[in-house]
Design a protein around this nucleic acid. Sequence first.
DNA 1: TTGTATGCGTTATCAA
DNA 2: TTGATAACGCATACAA
Lengths: 331, 331
Amino acid sequence: MPGKVTIDTVADHAQVSRQTVSNVINSPHLVREATRDRVLAAIDELGYRANHAARQMRTGRSRLIAARIEPTRDGINGSILDRFLHGLTEAAAPAGYRIVLYTAADDATEIATYDELLGSYELDAFVLTSTHHGDVRTRWLTEHEVPFVSFGRPWGAPDGHSWVDVNGAAGIAEATRRLLAGGHRRIGFLGWPEGSGVGDNRRDGWVTAMRDAGHDPTGLDRRVPDGTDEGERAARDLLSGGDSPTALVCASDSLALGALRATAGDRRIAVTGFDDTPVAQAIGLTSVGQPLAEAAGRCVELLARLLDNPAAPDGPEHILLRPHLVVRDSG
Amino acid sequence: MPGKVTIDTVADHAQVSRQTVSNVINSPHLVREATRDRVLAAIDELGYRANHAARQMRTGRSRLIAARIEPTRDGINGSILDRFLHGLTEAAAPAGYRIVLYTAADDATEIATYDELLGSYELDAFVLTSTHHGDVRTRWLTEHEVPFVSFGRPWGAPDGHSWVDVNGAAGIAEATRRLLAGGHRRIGFLGWPEGSGVGDNRRDGWVTAMRDAGHDPTGLDRRVPDGTDEGERAARDLLSGGDSPTALVCASDSLALGALRATAGDRRIAVTGFDDTPVAQAIGLTSVGQPLAEAAGRCVELLARLLDNPAAPDGPEHILLRPHLVVRDSG
DNA sequence: TTGTATGCGTTATCAA
DNA sequence: TTGATAACGCATACAA
C-alpha cells in the first residue's frame, strides 16, 4: 500500500492546484496543453484513480446500474436472463457503469427494493426485465423520476419510457414460414394462456404466417402454462385428433421439449422452440434465438443517453430487435 | 421528492445532535434508551436512510462485493455459476452487502479488473470462482491484502485463504456406489484431461469407489476436453471394446449427454452426469447436484466474518460441502 | 488559464 | 451520555 493517491497528491506532483487536476479530468478543454500533459503524466505515474465515493457525494451519481437476477425459476428458460445479464455487464463497463444485482420475488417486493437501493446506494438507473401486463414497476419508477430502461415492451401500457425488445412475432412467423416452405400445411402452435404480452405476441406471429399463406389456423393451437409436461400433454392432445398437425411451433423450448416427447421420435413431425436455450442446443432442437447481447448493449446505450441528458430532449426511444432462427435436427 | 433527509434532519427532528443520531445507528449501546427511542422514531417518521457514499468516504468501506459473471462459455455447464450468483445475491442482501458484476476473459485481465475496481469503487471483497492449478488471482489478492473468498479449493496451492467448495469426489463416489449396488461391475468413467483440479478430484471419487468395492478401474476411463461431441466419441470408444462397461459415470452433464447419444437408447447402459443442469432435468439424466445456494451463503458468511475482523484472528476457514445425487431415468 | 474557498453526509476524536 | 469539530476526496462557483 503506497499511501492513498488523491487528487492532491497528483496536484503536488504536477506542480499545479488541485482544481487544475480536476479540470484535466472533467473539463480538459479548459486546461492548457502543456499543463494538461504534465498532469496526465503525474496521474499515470502515480496510478491515480478518482475516488468513487467522493465523486458520488459531490455529483450525486454512483455510476451503478441495478438489474434483477431471477430466482432460478424454470431451469430451461431461466438461462435467458442470465445471458442478458452477461451482456449487460460487458456493455456497461466500457460506458463507465457497473451492474449491481438484486433479487425480488414479485413486483411489490421489487418496488420495495427500488426504494431501499435508491435510498442508500443512490443508484443511477435500473434495467427492468420481464415486463408484463399491469406492470406496476414502470409506473413507480416513472413517478419517482428514476431513470430506467426495460428489456421488454410495456405490454398494454403507454410507452412512457425507453425500451428494447425482441420481435417474438417475427421470430415465430419466420419459423412458421420455414415449415410452410418445407411443405408443411397443418402447422400447430403450442403457447401460453391468453393475457401474457409475450405469449400473445408470439402466437400472433404464427397466426399471421398461416393466414398469409392461406391456411386457417383455427383449432390448431393449444395454450397451456409453460413447462415440459404441459407441452407434452398439449402436443398429445393436438396430435391425437384427425387431421393432426405435421409440425409444431412452440412459444418456448420447454414446451417444445414436451412436444418432442409426445412425437416420440417420429421425425416426420417437425418441432421448433423459442429462445435457443442450452437444452435446445443439447438435443438438436430448432429454435428461435434472441440477440441477448445486442439487446443488453442497446439497453446500456439508451440508459447512457438518458443519464447524460437529464432533460431528455429526445423523449423515450424504442428498439425492436429481430430474433434469428437456429435450424437443427428437429425439423 | 420531499427534500433530502440527512442525519441532520433527523437530529433536528429528534432534538439531539447529529452525532447522537450516528451513535444510535452505529453504536446504540452508547445512547440512553429514551434518547435512542426518540431518534429511532424520528428516523422512522422521516424515512431516513444513511447515505452510502458519505459513509463510504468516511469508513472506506463500500459494502459492495464483486463477483465475476462468466462469458457464457458452454451452454450446458454455464448455468452453474449463474445459479451460484443468484445465491450470492440473495445471501448478501440480508448481510448488508450487494453484488457488483464484472467479466474477464482470463486471469490476467481479471487481475487488471481487480485493480481498476479497487482503485475507483473501493470494493470490500471479491468472490472468486473457477479456481484452478496455477491460479495467479489468489496470490495477487493476497499480496494486495484484498479480502476474498473462493468458491473452489486452491488446487495445488497453499490454503492461505478461506474457501468453500463442493466435494466432487464424494459425489462421484456416491453415484458409482449406487451403480455398484444396482449390480453394475464394469463402470466406466468419462472425465477431463489430467491436470484440472476439479476433474482429477472427480475421477478420484470413481477410482476410490471402484477399488473399495474390489474392482479394478484400470482402462475403464477416458479423459477428454469437456463437450457433448467429445463425450460421445469417448463413450463410443469405451463401449466398442470387449468387456465394455455397463455404466458410465461422467464428470459433467455435457459428457454424459454425449455418452447418452453413444448408447443410442440402450437403456441397459446407465449414465450419470454432474451438476444437475437444466439439460439433465430436461432429458431425465441422473446427475450429481451441487448445493450452490448453500455454497453461496457460506461464501457470504466467511466474507462477512473476514470483513468484521480485519485482524483475522481465526485464520482462513475451509468449508467442504457434500453434493447430492439426483436420480432420474438414465440409470 | 489557474487558484481559493466551500460543501456534499457521514463518522471519529475528543471535550464537556 | 451527549455534543462540537474535523476530516474523508472531490467538484463547483467564483476570484485572480
